[in-house]
Each structure stands twice: as structure tokens, then as C-alpha cells.
Amino acid sequence: MFVKISEQSSLYNDLEKKSIHELLEDINTEDQKVAIAVQRAIPQIEKLVTQIVPRMKQGGRIFYMGAGTSGRLGVLDASEIPPTFGMPNTFVIGLIAGGDTALRNPVENAEDDTERGWKELLEHNITDKDTVIGIAASGTTPYVIGALHKARQQGILTGCITSNPNSPMAAESDVPIEMIVGPEYVTGSSRMKSGTGQKMILNMISTSVMIQLGRVKGNKMVNMQLSNKKLIDRGTRMIIEELDLEYEQAKALLLMHGSVKKAVDAYKAK
């Protein structure tokens, strides 16, 4: 029988009687378990990333799919790819049950629609070069499971991030990532440890993929978008470090070419 560890009763009782200090200490104690759970899932994460990279080199995309907190975290990670790595927003796409409205407000029954997720993937003209990653602490979200099931039928690579072993969502995934963080501090509140772990794993997936695709040089975000003064300054200092130029010369070079990588390549090609 499938047991939802993420829904089991908290290890702590009488929370309303605790002091603020006790609450914070307890939450932090539980949060320390998350990194260990993620570490144990590295073999699964590695297996998924290893299969994603060659697909993306052929023009494939990553689709994150989730509801509620899980959906929001997928959209968040996807939205960070263009500014951080200079990739178009069409390469990593976050889909959330209920659409953009659900980013701020719950959309009633949206996650219970088993057909909607696949329809949304079809609207994006999904192909067998793409990857669909379901995100659900419970591992039982119909919106996600329905999409994974159809995607897998079409020979599309599927993965998932869940906080429960042997879930229905994992059964529809070629590479299930099972991150077992245990019961939440507030019983069933998967926005806590499960959400934290999901964020960590999404960071790991997208960052390692982008590095493998050549979007980082050394340890620098050489393809980041120059969307504010802070990032222009950061890019300028990267060029100074790489080419040993004066600040204003480096800044002018950066603004002329639009990215650190293009500026450095152009300067070296002279």
C-alpha cells in the first residue's frame, strides 16, 4: 500500500504553546534534514541530467509541471534561466495547474484535471527531444500524473521530484527522484521541507544542465543578461579579470557586445 510520508503527523506537538525561539529552533532542526535527503537522491538526479543534456544539445526543452507550491517552484526555476544563463525563455518552461493565476492564488480543482497538463504540453508542440519533470511532494497530483503518462506513451523522457517512495507519479517517470525528508513540522505543510528540497534539486538540475551546455566559463555567469546596474558591474569585473582592462574600457566592451562571453571572444579575436 502507498503511504504518504509527507502527510504523516509532525514529530512535534503543541506548537501553539512554544516560544518563538523554540519554533525557530525546531524548524531549523527539521530543515537540516533536507540537504541530507537531497544528497541521498544524487544518483537519481545524475541519471536524469545525464539523459537531459544530449536532448537539449539537439534543441530539446525541459518542462517542469506541478500544482501549488511545487508548480510555483518550477516556474521560479524556469524564470531564472534567461537572466542567469542568457538562454531564451523557451528552453526551460514551468507549467502550473491553473495557469499564471495560480502563481498568486489557489485555483479550485485545477490540480485534479488529468487531461489539462498534456493539453498544455501539446500547446507547446512537445517532441521526443523534450523532457517533462513532474514536481509533487505527495506524488499523487492528477494534473502531473496525466501529463507524465501521455508523455511517456509518446517516447518523451519523464522524471519527477517527490517526497514519497513508490508514488503513482514515480510509476509514470523514467527517472523518479525520491527525496525523503520525512513528516513536515506543521503536519502536511509540504511548502516547508518538501518545498525546500524541491528548490535545491531544481537548482541542481538546471545549473548542471546549463554548465554542460557551455553557459558558464570557469565559475562565471558569462552569458547572464545585463538587465540592471548590478549585473553590468558584475560583468565588467569579469572582463577586467579575464582581459586585465581598465574599468571603463571593460564596461564599454561589455555594453557593445551584450554579454561577457561575446565581449571576451571579440576582444581576443582582434
Results as ranks from 00 to 15, higher is better:
residue 243 L to A: 08
residue 169 M to A: 04
residue 82 P to L: 00
residue 8 Q to I: 00
residue 14 D to I: 13
residue 109 N to Y: 15
residue 263 A to V: 10
residue 121 L to K: 12
residue 20 I to L: 10
residue 257 H to T: 06
residue 193 K to A: 07
residue 134 G to K: 06
residue 15 L to R: 01
residue 104 R to I: 12
residue 31 D to R: 06
residue 185 Y to D: 00
residue 93 I to S: 00
residue 233 D to K: 12
residue 163 S to P: 01
residue 36 I to G: 03
residue 220 K to Q: 15
residue 97 A to H: 12
residue 242 E to S: 15
residue 140 T to D: 07
residue 222 V to D: 07
residue 230 K to C: 02
residue 11 L to F: 11
residue 109 N to V: 06
residue 142 P to G: 06
residue 35 A to V: 12
residue 105 N to W: 02
residue 133 I to S: 03
residue 259 S to K: 06
residue 112 D to Q: 10
residue 81 I to H: 07
residue 89 N to M: 08
residue 216 V to R: 01
residue 98 G to S: 07
residue 4 K to H: 13
residue 173 S to I: 11
residue 28 N to Y: 07
residue 222 V to L: 03
residue 187 T to I: 11
residue 216 V to F: 04
residue 27 I to R: 03
residue 148 L to Y: 04
residue 119 K to C: 10
residue 176 P to L: 04
residue 227 S to V: 14
residue 224 M to I: 08
residue 94 G to C: 05
residue 199 K to V: 08
residue 262 K to E: 05
residue 125 N to S: 15
residue 210 M to R: 01
residue 125 N to T: 06
residue 42 I to E: 14
residue 233 D to P: 04
residue 244 D to R: 07
residue 60 G to F: 05
residue 142 P to L: 06
residue 121 L to P: 13
residue 30 E to W: 10
residue 147 A to F: 05
residue 248 E to N: 15
residue 4 K to S: 13
residue 138 S to I: 12
residue 27 I to L: 13
residue 200 M to I: 14
residue 155 G to T: 03
residue 27 I to W: 01
residue 223 N to P: 05
residue 258 G to R: 10
residue 230 K to W: 10
residue 234 R to S: 01
residue 40 R to D: 13
residue 201 I to D: 09
residue 13 N to T: 15
residue 255 L to N: 08
residue 198 Q to V: 10
residue 68 G to T: 10
residue 225 Q to S: 14
residue 32 Q to D: 12
residue 58 Q to G: 00
residue 216 V to A: 04
residue 23 L to I: 14
residue 151 A to E: 02
residue 183 P to L: 10
residue 106 P to Y: 02
